[in-house]
Simulated assay, not measured.
Amino acid sequence: MNTLSYGLLSLLSFAPLSGYDLAQKIKPLWQAGHSQIYPLLVSMEQQGYISYKLIKQVDKPDKKEYTITEAGLMQLRQWVETPAEHPVLRDEMHFKLYSLWLSEPEKAKEMLRKREEFCMSELNRYKDMLKGNEVLREKRGESHEPKATTFGRYLLIRKRIMDMESALQFCKLALEELES
């Protein structure tokens, strides 16, 4: 199984989801398209890690709602307990910054302002997600203990908030440097 497979199992360990819902929920965490996700769902179902029930729909094709199985939970638990690989850093802007000397200062500022806008939008989105996670935590009667189903989600959202705050600080620094 690859990392995306484990990501799908992680999402399914929280709640049953359709393939479409999985594709939407994985976007903030991992870059993956439907063409990657659906074959993995078939494979994981064949391996016994997930099962599905067919949901009849009116005016739309029927959909499959996937659920993680006990075997899937065991596989996910083993994976969660192994050390994570070093993070892969892939940001097109890094190469652009490296070659910034070729850019007109106004174009460079425009690139940084667009990144700043994106980061602010993401920061607001993650802050809303944090509020939603708190509502879900309370609804489930959970605390902020590591065994709570919402705890890992809480930590991940907090990390993304910190990432966006750091990126905003960088944009501000870079824009100040371009101004001087």
Score class of each variant (00 low, 15 high):
D128I: 08
L54V: 11
K96I: 15
P105D: 08
S103R: 02
V58Y: 05
Y49A: 00
A108P: 01
K107W: 08
M120Y: 09
E45R: 00
R77N: 13
R125T: 01
A32H: 05
K96S: 12
P105A: 04
L76F: 09
L130N: 03
S103P: 00
P83M: 05
E85N: 12
D62G: 09
Q75I: 12
M111T: 03
Y52F: 07
Q75D: 12
K53C: 06
E110S: 12
H34T: 12
Y126C: 03
R125I: 00
E81K: 09
L54P: 01
Y98A: 13
L89E: 15
S103I: 02
C119G: 05
K56T: 14
A32E: 07
Y126M: 09
F95H: 12
Q46T: 06
Q78S: 15
N124E: 15
W79G: 09
I68G: 00
M93K: 10
E45M: 01
L100Y: 00
Q75W: 06
A108F: 05
K96M: 13
L76Y: 08
V88Y: 03
I37E: 05
E110P: 00
M44V: 02
E117H: 10
N133E: 15
M93A: 10
S103W: 05
A108G: 09
L41K: 00
L130V: 10
K96Q: 14
K127Q: 15
L89Q: 12
P83N: 04
G33A: 07
V88D: 04
H94D: 11
K131F: 02
R115L: 08
R125D: 07
K107L: 08
A108I: 08
Y126Q: 10
K63W: 04
V80Q: 15
E116T: 09
A71R: 04
L54Y: 03
E65S: 10
Y38W: 06
I68E: 01
E85P: 03
C119F: 07
T69C: 02
N133S: 11
E45P: 00
Y38T: 11
E117P: 03
L54G: 02
T82L: 14
E106Y: 02
L112R: 01
E65M: 13
P105R: 02
S51W: 01
E122K: 12
Y49G: 00
T82W: 03
I37M: 06
H94W: 11
E70C: 03
W79R: 15
E65T: 14
H94G: 13
A84G: 14
P61Q: 13
M111L: 12
W101E: 14
Y126I: 03
R77C: 11
E122W: 05
A32N: 09
Y49E: 00
N124G: 15
G132D: 14
L97W: 05
E45S: 01
R115V: 05
Y49N: 00
T69K: 01
D128E: 15
L97A: 07
F95L: 11
E134K: 07
E106F: 02
P83T: 05
L100W: 01
K114P: 01
E70Q: 12
F118E: 08
K131D: 06
E122Y: 08
